[in-house]
Design a protein around this nucleic acid. Sequence first.
DNA 1: ACAAAAGTGTTGAGAGTACACCCATGC
DNA 2: GCATGGGTGTACTCTCAACACTTTTGT
Lengths: 221, 221
Amino acid sequence: MKFDEYEKPAVTVDTVIFTVRNDSLQVLLVKRGVEPFKGNWAIPGGFVKLDESLEDAAKRELKEETGVKDVYLEQLYTFGEIKRDPRGRVITVSYLALINSDKIVLTPSTDVNEAKWFNVKHLPEFGFDHRKILNYALKRLKWKFEYTPVGFSLLPTKFKLSELQKLYEIVFDREFDKRNFSKKIHSLNFLKEVGIEKDVPYRPSKLYSLKSKVPEIIELI
Amino acid sequence: MKFDEYEKPAVTVDTVIFTVRNDSLQVLLVKRGVEPFKGNWAIPGGFVKLDESLEDAAKRELKEETGVKDVYLEQLYTFGEIKRDPRGRVITVSYLALINSDKIVLTPSTDVNEAKWFNVKHLPEFGFDHRKILNYALKRLKWKFEYTPVGFSLLPTKFKLSELQKLYEIVFDREFDKRNFSKKIHSLNFLKEVGIEKDVPYRPSKLYSLKSKVPEIIELI
DNA sequence: ACAAAAGTGTTGAGAGTACACCCATGC
DNA sequence: GCATGGGTGTACTCTCAACACTTTTGT
């Protein structure tokens, strides 16, 4: 087959954007302004331009939706069933993003471009195969939290152990024993003490930050 | 952006096909008959047709190259850098396939379509980013062997424990202790005895096959 | 003194690893 | 009886899970 004569599918990048706010794991969805599935909530995404890589496309979307750059971003899976989009043949490369809620500057919603954070425990109905994509993203998220230090990208640079533990409890939706958690984290030896909490009506906590050299795969939980 | 006006990248599916033969882990490569990289060895693949899913495209290629269907097949990663293919913008969805060497019927090589098995320890030079794809596939392969029962797809339905162990030793390129290996496999409790070896000049081995219900994720090594 | 959260140690169970000898068969 | 691979148990170490009390601070 000649390269230029080949009839091509459309390619989109959809990014499942997670954050942790208000003691819950949340995901950013946008309201569709056009058919199909007009009015339904969907995972934000768009077509890949010819002059940008897949990752750049994901970053561009992310910047447009949340005003945030320099976030954790990783490719998930590529969905390519024939009839997944009623408009025609569309292949979607999905991405996972983690953004620290302190840094979010959501651009104000307009009628055609409404974006909203949803608690992953209370998700709306989706069009396309977005439910499948989201489930996949959730599975990967948990895996990443369990085996790698990605979780730290959702915390400020200086944090307390109890904040880290809380984060893990939210993501895994269960409680951990404070002593065991502390032991585990310290044994991994990638935190450094960087100060102490001030002006709190209880015993001040030590503050930690991540050492610069941390292995990518480690067993965390 | 209107759906039909959008200028689209080309999409290919490349499949890294592994087997174990002659006590080594091998991968199937094809010799490129056209520029660019004419004469170089490459991972087999081709353009995705509009009326086939990504997985179907991978299966079609696999059938064409090896004459085998019903193999283990899984998506790996999608490579989408702008300049990865000198012909133009090409996005490649990579797949991993495992095929039992007993079932291979390689179609005879012609001058334009030469295919050959390479020991993964002695790979040739590649064009494109195929080295990167292969490294990714190797990493995933090991992960899969460690945490899931995929390995069994490379064995006949009835096999000896020592054959299973040998397979693992080849994939991980190290030896395992026979007693510990046996203990581990039996403790997982997904093998059933299905007979006994005949006519061998040594103590006959028990033959096993996989139980029908086996969890997808289990720690094997 | 009280409220709030921080910090810390021990014990038992289970899994992984290291290691060596006897067994069943065909020739 | 010999050559070949098959089959099996024990002891040590390490990690994980369960569990409760004292400390430090601000008010």
